[in-house]
Design a protein around this nucleic acid. Sequence first.
DNA 1: CTGTTAGCGCCTTCAA
DNA 2: TTGAAGGCGCTAACAG
Lengths: 343, 343
Amino acid sequence: MLNQKPDVDLATRERILRIMEEQGFVPNIAASGLAGRHSRLLGALVPSLTWPLVPELMRGVGEVVGSTSYELILYSINDVNHEKDRSDVIDRIVGTRLAAGLLAVFPGPSAKHLAELHSRDFPVVLIDDQGIPPEGTPWISVDNRVGAFEATRHLIGLGHRRIAHIQGPLKYQVSHERYLGYCDALNEAGIPLDPALVREGDFTPPTGRTCANAFFDLPAEKRPTAIFAGSDYMAYGVISAAEQRGLRVPGDIAVVGFDDNPASAHMEPALTTVRQPFYEMGRRASEMLLALVDALRPMNGLNNNGRVPGVPSSNFSEPIRIKMPASLIVRASCGASHRATIE
Amino acid sequence: MLNQKPDVDLATRERILRIMEEQGFVPNIAASGLAGRHSRLLGALVPSLTWPLVPELMRGVGEVVGSTSYELILYSINDVNHEKDRSDVIDRIVGTRLAAGLLAVFPGPSAKHLAELHSRDFPVVLIDDQGIPPEGTPWISVDNRVGAFEATRHLIGLGHRRIAHIQGPLKYQVSHERYLGYCDALNEAGIPLDPALVREGDFTPPTGRTCANAFFDLPAEKRPTAIFAGSDYMAYGVISAAEQRGLRVPGDIAVVGFDDNPASAHMEPALTTVRQPFYEMGRRASEMLLALVDALRPMNGLNNNGRVPGVPSSNFSEPIRIKMPASLIVRASCGASHRATIE
DNA sequence: CTGTTAGCGCCTTCAA
DNA sequence: TTGAAGGCGCTAACAG
């Protein structure tokens, strides 16, 4: 019977169905999933939505999923610092058989387990900015190295020679990648790397402040004229430390961040930074996941009439790993207005 | 049969079930919802997650829902400016019978329709900062007026007499409420309201900048010494305009915002603002929704054994409308460090 | 092509 | 108490 309509003799049921379809009839998704052995739900496994870039990502996901007949079910793992392996949670999720596929944002240590799920033909797409994809699992990431390279090169182009870098935690791959990009740019310009100008932070403003102060305490001839922070949040700390010392940004010290947090455009001075295309990544990831899920459907999504034979069920092919470009957003904090970026 | 376990003769089925239960057996949510005529999914209808405060809210929601056996299904309506009535979408959502209840964040014009759903015994909880609740529908909002009152009074306490206010769009109730709070504080201090010191913005930095410039253009004796912006974003614009004029914040002009965006603590100067307890609101709302949903379940959530009679199905009672307090967060931008707030 | 039937995995009721 | 049967709303595979 359809929805909760009152029972009628079976003879007229079909007719009723037809009529209802012509009006706006909405089938019960749960029942349809059950019967069709195929859920219309996609799971999204995300870390705290309060991370600055996750909402932007989910905007892309929501848009794509919203344009289909699928619905999004949100598994928001509010892990304190995202260190724990959430394989148990993932197993529970898969166990409920609610979702036809899983989109995992910044999976961290669970990536391995998700890759295994994928290899068992459960549709999985990973989004991360790390860059160490498990073998064969669909994976969308950001080209951190090139992003950092461009940021640093931009500072060099502005005449800076003593450029400091505040790394993220070294346990994260991204931190290394951004550091390598920084080195690349110095190399290209023939500027020797000065270890005194590289420090490790933890992505938060306080460590940005601490590292900046350490740089400011260097003897004048070793002191940097520009700081490239591994995250916008650390750049906030740098700016704050500079102001407290009476140093003007960008007049006395140029600052560049990484992430392009929503607020970074609106600060004073507006922060030059490297934008990661999270919205686009969300879109791409969702599209990939939908493709995987569809490939697994009986009849491959075609009506059961056409003579077209279903493709060999495991159509897990095509674009597997995507590396998205990060782009430099030039604003006031680096002291260059050679490109007027009004946002 | 349970999950997709291979078929066995009916005799041993039950035994298998028992054993599986002792191990970690995870029932199929869709099937259980179908059979039990009760879904274990809660719908969350949210505007763009990229609004600064929605993620914080969803953190609360996610935490509460995650601690139950319910799952969250996310209906993210990326409406351009949240004006459209989404009743059609809501009908589709309810029509799928997927969710047992609906949590609507900033429902805007759809609030009326949601209230009607509620009156038809479909569990609905609204979260809004507006303050015009439809009759009887569970509704959680923020006390904007008192928040604005405290912000303004704080400025008065610092010695300011000429305090400007930048309103949000007047089509929003919040804008009026915050304005009223501002007036309350002036009244209390016996400061006459000066219409030249009140302007309407649209919650974004550019209008903050525009309005601030208008204030700065006033003749010296009419010029404000403090500006209370109706949103943090507008406060960013104010700060930016001030800097461009060579005015120091808070030295020359004190600035207070409203919202406490995540970045507001990290700017230079850190922004004094009014925090809305969105995390807590998310929690409360989820708890209310869960209560409503449970009240509707057959047997009222008790096992079908106990002699306890189910409560009369419509147990829609208890806390219906909640107004949460907003709290002043004092930071550097208002020039008062009488409370050292390090964040 | 339309019509019918048999479940999907689970809950609930009734019988033992 | 325990167990078997019926059905939730729908789809898919089969008949006509």
